[in-house]
Design a protein around this nucleic acid. Structure first.
Lengths: 225, 225
DNA sequence: GCCAAAGTTGACTAGTTGGTCAAGTCAAAC
DNA sequence: GTTTGACTTGACCAACTAGTCAACTTTGGC
């Protein structure tokens, strides 16, 4: 409730934290649905239950608020990175990674939409993330996939394009959820349907790269090429 | 050149057609890059090389212009439908369809972005397309895929989720082209790279659904389930 | 050469919106 | 009970932008 006031000495920043959280939550929704330009600070303030002037007390400009939203999203994004690295077996690693990315699409659809919006609009705010963190992350995983190929564990596919397929498909369930709902009789996918979708994605990708369904270590066979 | 004037009787609408085309081309680019709200009619007019007032002579409102852009995009979209139906063999049909969708992503990336923007923003303008044309198109193709499964030509995957994977992956090359470029040393994919990406997508999807690489008619085996 | 219809355009307006500001409120510390 | 610093908020403004308009030009047909 914004109606309370400060305990600056006792619990410094507790009101601040509470209000910032409410604003950020509202901002993520509004930015996702209307884009940066389409969103208004008045909308965000209303959804957060505070006057517009109060929003500007916590976030001096619309752009600063937007940056914070994007920043939070990117950190959630990176959390899915871990799941890729927990195993050196392609079946296990990719199963985990795809499931994790699908779960993020389910749990944070707004964040995914904001991200998609950014990329479509040529990343005016996140270009540095793309060139540094995302770039490094991708390079490392491409190397891992290449090792799997060299070890004969998966078919010789292009690692980048494999990652793009995984990103595209998993994020599609967040970014295009409105289209999916419309094609699903106007109702969002149920939990059961979503689990089925996850299984399908994992299954098609794993079979698609010639990874065995069971995580078994096969003798290393060098692939042609 | 907008500097010419009318031949209303001789070639009725030729200036009109020329200017409308220039405006629509500019509008597609600007709407793709900035979204509906972020785009301004002044930007579009400038890119089309005409004064803003002239733009409003041809398209009374920004929304009317946007609708026309979206309408054109959807028609290009539907053209890829044909490629799905030209064969009843899954390998041939899906190879054709995926390649066609990839080619559209390459040739009309702006259109794809406008479409993605619309869906992310809950389709304020195209909801009727989703509920009618796209819905019908999807239902028909789902039935086709189901027949392939029943005939044992492909593995028993969920047809909807297979289509989503194909849509997501192929459109990713348009919608996320900026991210792809950034990860590709800041340069757009070359023609060779793009062809490789196409081959990878086709290969992974076909293998992923257990379709044989060579279009061969196998004896119809009923799948379990 | 004159007319009508199509096309062109600079200047204007009304509405929207990000951001400011001054006048407050509140509660703990002293 | 007064001070201090955090927080709140209605009213306001400057910038931007979709759309209008009236005066103008161009062109082909007669």
């Amino acid at each position: 409730m914004p109606r309370q006031a400060a305990q600056p000495k006792q619990e410094p920043g507790s009101i601040r934290r509470e209000n910032e959280t409410a604003i950020l939550r509202a901002a993520e929704e509004v930015f996702a649905e209307y884009g940066f330009k389409g969103a208004t600070t008045a909308m965000i303030a209303e959804r957060a239950g505070i006057p517009k002037a109060n929003l500007h007390y916590y976030f001096p400009t619309k752009l600063a608020l937007y940056r914070k939203v994007v920043d939070d999203i990117f950190n959630i994004w990176l959390q899915s990175a871990n799941s890729f690295d927990e195993s050196d077996d392609p079946v296990e690693a990719l199963t985990r990674y795809i499931n994790e990315k699908m779960d993020i699409s389910r749990a944070h659809p707004m964040g995914s939409k904001v991200w998609a919006n950014e990329i479509i609009h040529k990343a005016p705010v996140i270009q540095d993330y793309l060139e540094t963190t995302l770039r490094d992350w991708t390079d490392t995983r491409v190397a891992v996939i290449r090792r799997w190929i060299d070890a004969g564990k998966i078919a010789p596919v292009n690692p980048e394009y494999l990652l793009y397929m995984i990103w595209a498909t998993t994020q599609h369930y967040a970014d295009f959820s409105h289209q999916i709902s419309t094609l699903n009789d106007g109702k969002p996918l149920s939990d059961d349907q979503f689990e089925e979708a996850k299984r399908n994605v994992v299954e098609i990708v794993l079979r698609g790269i010639g990874a065995t369904a069971q995580p078994a270590s096969r003798p290393s066979i060098r692939s042609l090429a």
